[in-house]
């Protein structure tokens, strides 16, 4: 079947359609939008994509995305080096930073252990984590992996690995979303929320 689009346009739509969350219709809409907009705007978009791809790399310390060898969080002297938050992906760092509750440093594992897929500790940045604990004076490690099977396996594995080092090892709590309704909570989350209840100041 011959395509209704001219070849360059078909190539653009195919490329856009490979992006996450963009289907064939969405790709078509974006392509039409781009072709209609100013060439300056399109140039700017193309430039920002190539520049981001060329400049952004992993931080040598924490494996977060960074524009230099050391990311801004690792480079910031005001942050508390004694607390280290271990997360699965860079986007988790962003999520935690947005809360404004955490002033320590991060370590990105770049994935989670998945026994059923054969993804083990050696595929993650766990050796690098151990090396950091020795040199940076970390007192508490917060395991902020996702509350699903893979995240739980990873957290428990790390806890077992790190416990003998005499550090304080904590796991992020699971509970009810703010603004939610108790009656609509699923029993696993509610169970964990009850388990992790805390004393009220009077």
């Amino acid at each position: 079947m011959n395509s209704a689009y001219t070849p360059p346009m078909q190539a653009l739509i195919d490329a856009l359609g490979r992006l996450p969350g963009v289907g064939p219709k969405g790709a078509q809409r974006i392509a039409f939008h781009l072709l209609k907009s100013d060439s300056v705007d399109v140039e700017r978009l193309a430039h920002s994509i190539t520049e981001a791809k060329a400049l952004v790399r992993f931080c040598d310390h924490c494996f977060n995305f960074s524009d230099g060898p050391i990311c801004r969080i690792c480079d910031d002297d005001r942050r508390d080096s004694s607390m280290l938050c271990v997360v699965e992906e860079s986007r988790d760092v962003i999520a935690i930073e947005k809360t404004g509750e955490f002033r320590g440093r991060y370590h990105v594992l770049l994935g989670a252990m998945n026994p059923l897929e054969g993804i083990g500790p050696e595929q993650l940045k766990i050796r690098e984590l151990l090396a950091r604990l020795d040199t940076e004076g970390v007192k508490e490690v917060i395991l902020c992996t996702n509350p699903n099977t893979e995240g739980d396996v990873t957290a428990m594995y790390l806890a077992r690995l790190l416990k003998p080092l005499g550090l304080r090892i904590t796991r992020i709590a699971s509970g009810l979303p703010v603004g939610g309704d108790l009656e609509y909570a699923d029993e696993l989350t509610l169970g964990r929320a009850l388990e992790g209840r805390r004393e009220m100041p009077g």
Partner: peptide, 20 residues
């Protein structure tokens, strides 16, 4: 939910054996 898998999720050995 018929049976919660929470007891398995609380222990690394049990969890990995369950996954196996």
């Amino acid at each position: 939910l018929i049976e919660s898998s929470a007891p398995l999720h609380a222990d690394l050995d049990r969890l990995t054996q369950g996954l196996s």
